[in-house]
């Protein structure tokens, strides 16, 4: 099973799921001839058709004028490394409502640096703190764009009481 076949298969699954949802879209009395589900259904069918074509072409072993592909082992290694960055991003989304922006983003800088090959050191802590302060300064102080404050305001308020 080559890459194109897998891509075609995934495309087909997406098209089927999308078409099923498009078919369920309720048409209102205001609807025109095409309706809210009209074009989505066509898009679903088109994606399914091209996905099937890709799968058939992959099975027939049709050659394309294409460049070099990386070895599969290298791709798997690359994908695993990428997932780490994704996990750090998801971790940020989960943590920032509680830890607040400055602390969370400092942790992101530190963890992402370590993950990309950096080493635990005072320098790393300093750069993470400085980076977080720099981003906070630009977004919150200069541009007046609010970032999540976390539990700290409530906690400080509670302690004052």
């Amino acid at each position: 099973m080559n890459r194109d076949f897998v891509a075609g298969f995934l495309g087909l699954l997406l098209a089927m799921g999308y078409y099923a949802m498009a078919a369920k879209i309720q048409s209102s009395q205001l609807a025109d001839d095409v309706g809210p589900g009209g074009l989505p259904k066509i898009y679903g069918i088109a994606l399914a058709s091209f996905s099937i074509l890709l799968m058939v072409r992959a099975r027939l072993g049709v050659v394309q004028a294409e460049g070099k592909q990386r070895p599969v082992a290298k791709e798997i290694f690359s994908a695993k490394r990428s997932m780490g960055i994704l996990v750090i991003g998801i971790g940020y989304i989960l943590a920032v409502p509680y830890l607040g922006y400055p602390l969370s983003i400092a942790v992101v800088i530190a963890v992402a640096t370590l993950y990309n090959g950096g080493q635990i050191s005072l320098r790393l802590a300093g750069i993470a703190a400085l980076g977080a302060f720099g981003l906070w300064f630009v977004f919150v102080f200069l541009l007046h764009i609010g970032q999540p404050a976390g539990i700290w305001p409530d906690l400080i308020e509670g302690m004052r009481r």
Partner: peptide, 23 residues
């Protein structure tokens, strides 16, 4: 490179949130 990439990632996370204040 690891410092630069980490900082760019932090910039992306901060910047995307800033568009509509939405996680």
């Amino acid at each position: 490179k690891h410092y630069l990439m980490a900082f760019i990632f932090a910039l992306v996370l901060s910047g995307v949130y800033a568009i509509h204040n939405s996680l």
